[in-house]
């Protein structure tokens, strides 16, 4: 524990309201520098949704059990309900809102929309962001690899199969885009 944390703890012991006092936070979300003035106990999920208006990230448990809240931090999928926002300063946060290229859907989004990967859509943000991390690391994952990578993301609607098909389709499209890009 750093000295400053101890100082904060001591201050809070003297004055419980101190824990509630807002702190100013600078976050880099989808490439934008954003500032928010938030209670220090808030999770990244809460700050994204309640203070930055980025409600594309969902929650199904707020206990790290469902995967609906997954975002990328420095490229890796992270459950935003388990992350304190104050610990995310200086890190690169990506949410579903930053994925489309302008009005054009990212291939993962297009595939989920076209192939039934999204029914109610509530798991979709977490599912798509987790899949993005997978495809960034492995452009041609096997179906087994897709299942493993997404195994922490619960979907109650689809039965998963159309999600696997969507990820496979997006992987194909991304690979084709890449091979076109380098002539």
């Amino acid at each position: 524990m750093s000295a400053s944390t101890n100082a904060t703890e001591r201050a809070q012991a003297r004055d419980p309201a101190a824990a509630r006092r807002n702190v100013c936070l600078r976050l880099r979300v989808n490439g934008e520098e954003l500032e928010a003035y938030v209670a220090p106990y808030k999770t990244l999920l809460e700050v994204l949704r309640e203070d930055l208006g980025l409600t594309g990230t969902k929650h199904g448990c707020e206990l790290g059990e469902c995967g609906a809240c997954a975002v990328l931090i420095d490229g890796a999928p992270v459950l935003s309900c388990l992350e304190l926002a104050v610990q995310c300063e200086e890190r690169d946060i990506q949410t579903i809102e930053g994925l489309a290229r302008g009005t054009e859907l990212h291939p993962l989004q297009a595939a989920f929309a076209d192939l039934g990967g999204s029914q109610c859509g509530y798991c979709t943000s977490g599912m798509v962001m987790t899949a993005k991390a997978l495809l960034d690391a492995d452009p041609a994952p096997s179906r087994e690899r897709i299942k493993e990578a997404l195994s922490g993301n619960i979907c109650r609607c689809t039965g998963y199969q159309q999600i696997w098909e969507s990820v496979e389709e997006a992987a194909r499209v991304l690979r084709a885009e890449k091979s076109e890009a380098k002539p």
Partner: peptide, 19 residues
């Protein structure tokens, strides 16, 4: 076909009650 609400659901624009 792509469902008519498919786009909103995959870009995080579909609003649910807690949003």
């Amino acid at each position: 076909r792509r469902r008519v609400d498919g786009r909103a659901k995959t870009i995080g624009q579909q609003r649910f009650a807690d949003d």
